[in-house]
Simulated scan of single mutants.
Amino acid sequence: MTSTNLLVVGVWNTFVEGDNLDVMTGLDAGSTDLVYADPPYNTGNDFAYADRFRTTRGGLAGRHRAWLEMMRPRLEQVHRVLSPEGAVFVSIDDHEGARLRLLMDEVLGEENFLAQVVVNLNPKGRQLGRGFATDHEYLLVYARDARRCALDASSPDAVDPDDFPEVAADGRRFRHLPLRNTNKKFNPRTAPTLHFPVHGDPDGGRVALDPFPGSVEVRPVFGDGAPAVWRWSRPLIAARPDDLVCREIRGLRGPRVDVFQRDWLERPGGRRKKLRTIWHAAEVGSTDTAVAEVKELVGHVFESPKPTGLLRRILRTMPSDARVLDPFAGSGTTGHAVALANLEDGGSRQCLSVNSAEPVRPGSHAEHAGLATVADVTRARLRAVAERLGGGFEER
């Protein structure tokens, strides 16, 4: 993948101060592989910066309308700059989550919706105010073109070794999976080439295509005795007989002989598992850990950053040379995460972070630290990341 027209070749982090709509309008079409956006949630509160969209008419409905009017042209630009294989992740909470989902369906296409992930960023729950102690927000995930998207919604981090309780003589861990296909959509009528007998020894465990001394014929059946099919073809069984085992089991109709696959924890190329759509703070970090990350680099200058663990999980769903755009860069978490991810896997990701010169809240930690705008916060963190982790930093 090549870099965008604002990225500096070989530099991991580039920063642009300005209105993100103007900046994205100047980017080449298809020049970005991954967009992460953390827009204002329109909560009506002020933190390090203002998070409210005022209108002179319309009350609450007018405020929602003003927020959507801000978001629509920016999402249209996100759609334009995404490569055909690209994807976008947008953080949001319940204030505008439903409206954002409809807007993204309209701009990016309902057919390109990939997931709505629940992210547990505040495991203690918010104790202020009335009602429930909210402990989550959302990630809305869309592809530029779902048929061509490079996103891999799996991760080695999702693999739990405890799911592999068996231990082979050489110390390798595995689990037994039925060789028969347990989905009744696959049966002798829909997959006739996968319905055939094999031969196995339930005492010794050996499995083969042809009979051998001590073997019995085994045909795939469902628990109720209906004919089933194998998951493996004849050639695959012939090539990997040592990964199969014959066992006697207790079925619904009493004991019967069946064939199982030894599914190894370690496999060539590494094992990955599909990511679930609830991400816990223990896995991706919390708002508290995110504040600590910023504080360790540049001081306590941002009250509600995202944790780098969340962004690193997002980054790992895309190729390691992805061109990344964060149009609402905030404290600079995405750029920080890009540097960490590149160090972890030797990747060559590049990140373009954009932030406006919006003044920080009077009396905030950022103001006391001498940072007058949110862009100053982003700039300070990305410079510190380059000094601490490498990868360079350029401002355009």
Rank of each mutant, 00 (worst) to 15 (best):
V385N: 02
D38L: 02
R65N: 12
Y138A: 06
S154C: 10
F89G: 00
G58W: 02
Q77C: 07
D28W: 04
A115N: 15
D258G: 07
R54N: 11
S83R: 13
N112A: 06
T193Q: 14
G204S: 15
E137S: 06
D157G: 01
G30L: 02
L244H: 12
G299I: 00
A281T: 11
A143P: 01
R99N: 12
G346M: 09
R147V: 06
A380F: 01
L60I: 15
G86D: 05
S233T: 15
V216M: 05
N355D: 15
L275I: 15
A226K: 14
A50I: 03
I249W: 05
L236K: 13
W232N: 05
Q350H: 12
Y138N: 07
A37F: 07
V374L: 12
S331H: 10
R383N: 09
P156K: 08
L244S: 12
V218T: 03
G251A: 11
D288F: 08
P227G: 05
V294L: 13
R52G: 05
L75K: 06
L60D: 13
S3K: 11
G200I: 01
D145H: 12
A29W: 05
W264D: 04
F164A: 09
G109M: 09
A282W: 03
T32D: 01
L179M: 15
G97V: 06
P255W: 11
R247T: 04
I314D: 03
R72G: 09
L82Y: 13
K185C: 01
V291M: 09
V374F: 07
V245G: 03
L140Y: 09
T56S: 15
R126Q: 13
L21T: 03
R63E: 13
N181W: 07
D345I: 08
L340R: 06
R271C: 05
N122P: 00
E106G: 05
E137R: 08
Q116V: 09
A226R: 14
H136E: 03
H176I: 02
R175C: 10
S83I: 04
T193W: 11
P235V: 12
G332K: 10
R253H: 14
G223T: 08
D263R: 09
L252F: 00
V207A: 08
